[in-house]
Design a protein around this nucleic acid. Sequence first.
RNA 1: UGGCCUAUGGUGUAAUUGGUAACACAGCUGAUUUUGGUUCAGUCGUUCAAGGUUCGAGUCCUUGUAGGCCAACCA
Length: 561
Amino acid sequence: MSEEVKSLNFIEHIIEEDLTKGYKKDELRFRFPPEPNGYLHIGHASSICLNFGLGLRYNAPVNLRFDDTNPAKEEKEYVDAIKRDVEWLGFQWDTECYASDYFQQLYDWAIQLIKEGKAYVDSQTSEQIASQKGTPTEPGKESPYRNRSVEENMTLFEGMKNGDFKEGEHVLRAKINMASSNMLMRDPVMYRILHKPHHRTNTDWCIYPMYDWTHGESDYIEQVSHSLCTLEFLPHRELYDWFLDQLVSTNKLRPKQREFARRNLSHTVVSKRKLLQLVESGVVSGWDDPRMPTISGLRRRGYTPESIRNFADTIGIAKRENVVDVSLLEFHVRDHLNKIAPRVMAVLDPLKVVITNYEEGAEEWLDAENNPEDEAAGSRKVPFSREIYIEQEDFREEANRKFFRLKLGGEVRLKNGYIIKAESCTKDEDGNVVEVQCTYDPKSKSGSGTEESLRKVKGTLHWVSIPHAITAEVRLYDRLFSEANPDGNKEKDFMEFVNPDSLQKVTGYLEPSLQDVKVGDVFQFQRLGYFNVDKDSSTQNLVFNRTVGLRDTWAKLEDKN
RNA sequence: UGGCCUAUGGUGUAAUUGGUAACACAGCUGAUUUUGGUUCAGUCGUUCAAGGUUCGAGUCCUUGUAGGCCAACCA
């Protein structure tokens, strides 16, 4: 296998340059640092693939670190879900880390800053502090508490830690520069009081470090060489570096933060807050609703880890604003499923066909190939009888030459079966066709090798024998949002673009081989799309999700007319 | 009216670091096909604008334009 020459993204360029400038390869270390306050989505998948991909590329360890500094929002449930998702995507972390493991070290370092006169306790309200912050165009004002003595700061900070104060009474701030053009450098808060139990440290602490005071220091503790985050953290870099400047020792590796653009996907939203809103408003059934762009939603929908990784690989990483078309994701899942999904026959919108010259009560079991892309997949038997279902849209009383399907007087092959000819049809009082009467050519059986079986007819239809069919609930999904970029509109809230028809449930008639499927099994319902077995499924009540439809050039042709 | 970031086909990303603008998806033709799927062949279309440096600019410089980020005791 020859190594394909693959171009590097800008992060890889940075690393390559660092390697030439003295970094040693075994010093490289990365991390994926989610906050456990929600489920991972496709945007995170991109970040996961970036960090773990780098780990694979450079044979470097990658930590999974939970940024758990805000007990008000974080829960163990999310920790577990995140671990499950990363593993499912196929990655292995080196060490499972928690920012909360560093609370004591962070506290000790904070004491050090206080002693060096680089941090102080501010006793104003958050409103007062905010009002002194200034604006991007005006400098801020210094707090009246900015020049407290080290002793007073020490006493107060210890009091904060010991629970002597109520929430909001004091905060610890870094003493930097209230006139900085970077708002984050205007004496940022390092600690706040929160009398809330933490999912790991319980009530050990009632002061919690802020993101900026935690993240770079955690990277430093773990000796992460390249700390990659999204572009909105770019202004934080100056502060990240300032904090590191205060405590980095020269014999240890100094982490560097670099930023990349988050990936947006068309026809959906990728923001935990907005996804939470969809869950809480009941628009979707939960974080793993198959319409959700969460990793758990995609998994339930039938996406494979390979397809998501290939997608992330293809879209790459860069610094500009982007909205990736969801059709690219769909391409990758089709691409993978085409190779692995067994083919079966299912009818979702049935029309009864009676084969008038086929003996009543007779049945035969026909050979059917499981996957033309994979000979090793073998074959199975499907039952055939006098009465079958085909799709409503596969029959028209009359149609032009472009219509390759069944029409009166026309012939069509039943997949894996016989060539049939439509002779007549019956309609209900509204004029809808309710049954088609056909004749079949007994010598045209698929694979029989007869001259008739080799005849070419233009159309091939999938079908299912009515007496043998089993039923299932089939859930058909459409895009969750009607707008390509639902959160790109300044006047309208993204919730206004929710597609009310994103879920349609129908009863499907399936070939009986589907009786014993397991949750998660994937299939191609021939000519319809890829489907998997939903977790709501039981032996009595099968439930399938449509992962994605097949490419449909016929539908496009129809749309044009 | 501050600071910072970004700008390459419809979409996403490349371009040996100043040397022929390409890859994937989408679109369109056609061939193959017992899935209007797959596969194969072909096709369409790109450097935000204006100046400048240079033998040569997507790449460097200047100015402009457009978009984004920054004023949580969130991350």
